[in-house]
Amino acid sequence: MIAEKEKNGFKESLAYIFSRNPVLVLGLVIGQLAAGDTTLQNGVALSITYLLITVPVLVFASVIGKKLPDWLKIVSYAVLSAAMLLPSYFICGSISATIFDSLGIYPSLLAVSTVPIVFSSKIAEKQSPAFAAVNGLCISAGFAVTAILLGAAREFFGNGSLWGFKIAEASFPAVKLPFWGFILLGFMAAIINWVKDLIKKTDKNPDGEEERV
């Protein structure tokens, strides 16, 4: 039986997709996107890897993790995350045979990111398995939205293509470099802040009148 608190919590989990986006609001997993997410295919591959790592580890933490001794918990989460790279390797291989070559070490770094290691030990252990799974799905969805948008934008402006299909000439080749990844993520985070402010203003006045600022 899911607690009443968790029923409300399911709605709050959906916030991980936008208003508590793990990358743009919580500031997790920034480097892997800035450096690795240079095409749409890379973005999708990183999203699949993150999903396959996050959800099983959070559920594991919820079911078994809380019963383990302290010294074994984080070790088991890290080893399980690394083991989940194997199914992701096979699934991402269907996108492109050399996708993991082009991504380099960045999918591996997802295995030791904050959510599988810290989030699972501090938060997921106190949740029910269903709630932990929903949290994991929502966090992965938030990550996927960011990764796909960023990858698509960088591939379009950097290569003039989308999903490997040439559409136009490359308009700004340097956008594939890591420093432009940071700058674009910064602007995406600013857009989220702008939308949140807009929602806050319209929520305060449900009649549609704009509040004087």
Partner: peptide, 11 residues
């Protein structure tokens, strides 16, 4: 205001 926090740190 919209750049305060994570956005400006990333830039």
């Amino acid at each position: 205001k919209i750049f305060r926090g994570i956005p400006i740190a990333l830039i």
